[in-house]
Design a protein around this nucleic acid. Structure first.
Length: 484
RNA sequence: GGCGCGUUCGUCUAGCGGCCUAGGACGCUGCCCUCUCAAGGCAGAGAUCACGGGUUCAAAUCCCGUACGCGCCA
């Protein structure tokens, strides 16, 4: 019998969920789903100073928006659900204390009385002598008498974990293979702070074990901590999970992706009008690919094909241009009613809802293949609902030679024209072009500029039909008058 | 400083000793379609596989160095 796969994402609620975190979440989730396993969410809020409830909410909202569901973990910022609850580390301190006592009792950890000043001095000396700046283990060898003495002086202590001094620790990493670290280079890690609190590496090990994690998928930056964590597993008599360390995501300039490269928070991408499916697909491809270099995936495809071994070891640059292409691709694939639903918040924000004019079914359908972002929808269709705003280019067209006559003539020709419909309009207007002995462009271009205020836009005659006779005539006359 | 990780077109990547005069995708250029802009179709430019040594009949692929970048120790 094989054990059920269990993976987790364990964010610190000290800010928004950023792109890197989103990808880690996605990969953990995909791996669990691929193997019919469970995906767990755990909140690592032991940093009391920087952790906030708003961050928890923002992170949960981000993951929900991405369309990734979790089987156990927080329900909201306060409560949680699952067989291994609580899933907030601050509520688990008593659990950590129990294992701390066990390590202490077994002589696998010890009290360290060194002050911050002493440690700083140690580090300074080490650097001076060009030795690695690590703890020298002076309290590890402390005699019972030495301990008594320090405690009599009222000295505070932290708890350090005794690392082995010989041999090597091998990390079996799904992505990087076997990575070996010499034990003598591992420090005696502080697992409990003087200020009475467990530290990250300690909590992480205990939770991952107690919550039954079979695979730990996380960022590259944790690879160096992994041998120390593995030693804690051993000391507690536990089997470490399988690890998979993902490479970083970089900004266009090759440095770690950050605020100055633009949006980093997942929710900003939502607000810019990216679809969750785009984010899933794009992020999946940022560091993973199949043998065919396939680009577009359904969720079923992704789940069926994703594997950790196929992940890239080298960092990847986040490319907004490709992201936009993919979003356009998925917007075009979205059925119209659904697209209108998705566009609502953006139409609302642009003040287009409730204005007289054609239905969004018609105008959005007309421009559907042009949207790369949902946020572009209002801009491309607003002239159907709002007074014409003439762009610089359009103004040039409208003041060009013959434009005024063409527009005035058109207004006259279309005044009593029926039916006011695509094909019929095209036939009539082409006939008008011929009557006047003009070239098509001499009429089409000013016509477009007059009714939309732009030189680029939807296919001309269908646009006129949708806009309606009244508006078209009014705008023609208006433009003709202004061109004079 | 030590340790660890990484390095294939501008970008994401395929590649796991001969199929590679290195494939796909985004972007870019040109052409076609056409009432504009898109979308679509076609074509093209673009990578001496970081560099230097080996191993081998044969290396982007294996080994060893070097450089550069990144991470952890803080």
């Amino acid at each position: 019998m094989t054990t059920k796969v269990r993976t987790r994402f364990a964010p610190s609620p000290t800010g928004f969920l950023h792109i890197g975190g989103a990808r880690t979440t996605l990969y953990s989730w995909l791996f669990a789903r691929r193997h019919g396993g469970d995906f767990i969410l755990r909140i690592e809020d032991t940093d009391e100073v920087r952790s906030t409830d708003e961050s928890v909410t923002a992170i949960l909202d981000s993951i929900k928006w991405l369309g990734l569901n979790w089987d156990e973990g927080p329900i909201d910022g306060k409560s949680d659900k699952g067989p291994h609850a609580p899933y907030f580390q601050m509520k688990r301190v008593e659990i950590y204390r129990k294992y701390l006592d066990q390590l202490l009792a077994e002589g696998k950890a010890y009290r360290c009385y060194c002050t911050k000043e002493e440690l700083d001095e140690m580090r300074r000396l080490a650097q001076l002598e060009k030795r690695p700046p690590r703890y020298d283990g002076r309290c590890r060898a402390l005699s019972e008498a030495g301990r008594k003495e320090r405690e009599a002086q009222g000295k505070k202590w932290s708890i350090r974990f005794k690392m082995p001094v010989e041999g090597a620790t091998v990390v079996d990493d799904k992505i990087r293979g076997m990575v070996s670290f010499e034990n003598k280079l591992l420090q005696d890690l502080v697992i409990w702070k003087t200020t009475d609190g467990p530290t990250y590496n300690f909590c992480c090990v205990i939770d991952d074990h107690l919550m039954g994690m079979t695979h730990v998928v996380r960022g590259d930056e944790h690879l160096s901590n992994t041998p120390s964590q593995i030693q804690i597993y051993y000391a507690l008599g536990w089997q470490p999970p399988v690890f998979a360390h993902l490479s970083m995501i970089l900004g266009p300039d090759g440095s770690k992706l950050s605020k100055r490269h633009g949006a980093t928070s997942v929710l900003e991408y939502r607000d810019q009008g990216y679809l969750p499916h785009t984010m899933r697909n794009y992020l999946a491809l940022l560091g993973w690919s199949n043998a065919q270099s396939q680009q577009l995936f359904t969720d079923e495809d992704l789940i069926a094909q994703f594997d950790l071994e196929g992940c890239q070891k080298s960092p990847a640059t986040f490319d907004t241009v490709k992201l936009q292409w993919m979003n356009g691709e998925y917007i075009r694939q979205t059925p119209l009613p659904e697209l209108i639903e998705l566009a609502k918040p953006f139409l609302e924000k642009a003040g287009l809802i409730g204005l007289p004019g054609p239905s969004f079914e018609k105008t959005i359908a007309l421009e559907k293949e042009k949207f790369k972002l949902l946020s572009e929808i209002p801009t491309l269709i607003e002239f159907f609902y709002k007074p014409v705003e003439v762009t610089e280019k359009a103004a040039k067209v409208l003041s060009g030679p013959g434009a005024r006559d063409a527009l005035a003539g058109l207004a006259e020709a279309l005044k009593d024209f029926a039916p006011f419909e695509d094909k019929a309009l095209e036939a009539r207007i082409r006939q008008f072009v011929e009557e006047k002995g003009l070239k098509a462009g001499q009429v089409f271009h000013p016509l477009r500029a007059a009714v939309s205020g732009r030189t680029e836009g939807p296919t001309l005659f269908l646009m006129l039909e949708i806009m309606g006779k009244e508006t078209v005539l009014a705008r023609l006359k208006d433009a003709a008058a202004k061109a004079a």
